[in-house]
Simulated assay, not measured.
Amino acid sequence: MDNLTHGLVGALIGQAGLKRRTGLAMPALIFGANLPDIDAGCVVWGTESLAMRRGLTHGPIALVLLPLALAGFLWWFDRWQASRGTRPEERLKVHFGWLFALAFLACLTHPALDWMNVYGIRLLEPFSYRWFHGDVLFIIDVWLWVMMGIGLILSLRREKRGGNWRAPARAAIAGALAYIGVNAGITHWHEARATLTEPFPETVIAAPVPIKFWHRNILASRGSGDWIASDWSGREFGYGYRYPAGTRCHLPDARHASANRPDVAAFLFWSQAPFALRNPDGGVTVYDARFFFGPTRGNFMVELPDTPCIPLR
């Protein structure tokens, strides 16, 4: 998910009452909720970064070491301020154990949220490089923003006025969990329906869409890189080929295609729904069906100009 969502989750956990456990609890929660995304800098490698993102820093070892490092820094920062005479008097006493526990809890919410969109996460790296994706929420969910944002604002206002500031935050967390549960049910219903509908696909991905959380873009595979899709609007159920006639090709052999092409190797390692289309000037382009339609199309593809198109019928 986006970093605003991660930050709101950390802030709400604090406003639900846990920020009173130790000084600097809110930085531990908010930064901890975003900490696994320190791998974002790898995007400078372009397509090759697909094999680097949402992997090692989102895995079990990092989810322990990153909160430990954050807690250590905050503990040091508190003492550094005290030595300079700049430590705020109203700050609670800092407990390293609680700092680590809160940062660890916040860190755990990060992969949980990242799992909920179609991009996915390598949850077990470095022990396993398998991708996991729940297809529950769109990567930027404005309804979560609104729900959690209102809860956070109300909580902060009540705290300032001396009221029960924990209740709005807890209500927002409960509402967000209920919303996620509803979306999980919608995804499951769409995937089950698609599986039982002709041409009875082997694999189904019900991809959430922006704003209209009740809609899903159905991506279905009948094997051999043959991915088909339903209408993005979700008004009609059923499959409709969305590619120009005669352009679909068999997926190239992964070993041959990625030889001396680290960008192709990274793309095929990352892609959960790869398929190939013939280029007008020869060769093929490999796309991922999850990001083929809309503005993301040009960001998730690799061109293979020397690979012939073997027509897919």
Rank of each mutant, 00 (worst) to 15 (best):
G162K: 05
W270G: 03
R235E: 15
R313V: 11
G162C: 07
A207V: 09
V9Q: 02
D135N: 13
I186F: 11
R21P: 08
A266L: 02
P305I: 08
V118F: 06
P67G: 00
R122V: 09
I13H: 08
A103M: 00
S221N: 08
V44G: 01
G134V: 00
V264S: 09
A62R: 04
L268S: 01
S233E: 09
R278D: 13
P280F: 07
H188E: 13
R248V: 08
E191Q: 12
I205A: 15
N217D: 14
G225L: 01
W115F: 12
A11W: 06
R278F: 12
Y129A: 14
N34E: 07
R248S: 11
F127H: 04
G46L: 12
P295Y: 01
I205T: 15
F300N: 10
D114T: 05
A174I: 12
F291G: 06
G46N: 07
D114L: 05
L144I: 09
A106H: 08
D263G: 03
I186L: 13
A103L: 01
R242L: 06
E48V: 07
V44I: 06
I140R: 03
F275C: 01
W270M: 12
H256I: 14
P262R: 04
F269T: 07
T109S: 10
R242P: 07
A184C: 00
S155A: 11
N117M: 02
L268E: 01
T22K: 11
P201F: 00
S83Y: 03
H110A: 05
G246H: 08
M52S: 12
L137S: 02
R54C: 01
E48N: 08
F237Q: 13
V302E: 09
G14D: 09
L219P: 11
G41W: 08
D288E: 09
Q81K: 14
P168C: 07
L65N: 06
G163W: 14
E191T: 14
L177W: 01
W131I: 10
F200T: 12
W145F: 06
D2G: 00
I121E: 10
R255W: 13
L124C: 06
P262A: 03
R297F: 11
L105K: 02
M52P: 06
H190K: 11
F73S: 06
G85R: 01
L68H: 02
P280A: 10
A82P: 10
R21E: 03
R161W: 00
T57M: 13
H256D: 15
A257F: 10
